[in-house]
Amino acid sequence: MDTAYQEPMNLLLSGVGGQGVILASFLLSQVALEAGYDIKQSEVHGMAQRGGSVVSHLRFGHKVYAPLFTPGQADLLLSFEPLEALRYLHWLKKDGLLVYNTVRVNPSTVSSGAAEYPEGVEERIGRSFGRVVGLNAVAIAAQAGTARAANLVLLGAASPSLPFSREMWDAVLKRELASNVLEVNLKAFQLGRAAVEG
């Protein structure tokens, strides 16, 4: 009998194809590996690059069985877009944490006039849920040098809530990111972290 079994930590990343969700999930998996955990990661491939929602599950712990978890199980929801935060809010545990980017990306159904972007998304998030960090990751990334590094800003903002040291993050980012974009990404990560640590 597996008496040592403890439930793993569950991270859900949600966003839109092209926002760097998969890279962020990969970097998180590498830091969890650096910290010595068993990991499982899952995302559905296929149509994401054609403008769909992107969701990635990352789980780490002493022993992880299932590659995915279910609504009500997430310790952390890291969302790259407000609507994609709202869509997956119910995946959080009661005391889970939401970190999200407040910059909208219109679904094609909205830009074509077939649907409307819901009003008051941020208010709805705040009203239905307690532990929330919302930040303009695109503007913060632009301060670091490129708006494209918004995913690193979000990782930085989530990092104080995760059981990984600064040294582990630094080691992984330096190992996994291309040297020509490393500096701007490290800066984006730090600005994201500073934004929540105040």
Partner: peptide
């Protein structure tokens, strides 16, 4: 938490 209803999809 309950799922939010009526959100526009991203097909």
């Amino acid at each position: 938490y309950a799922a939010q209803e009526g959100l526009p999809v991203r097909p």
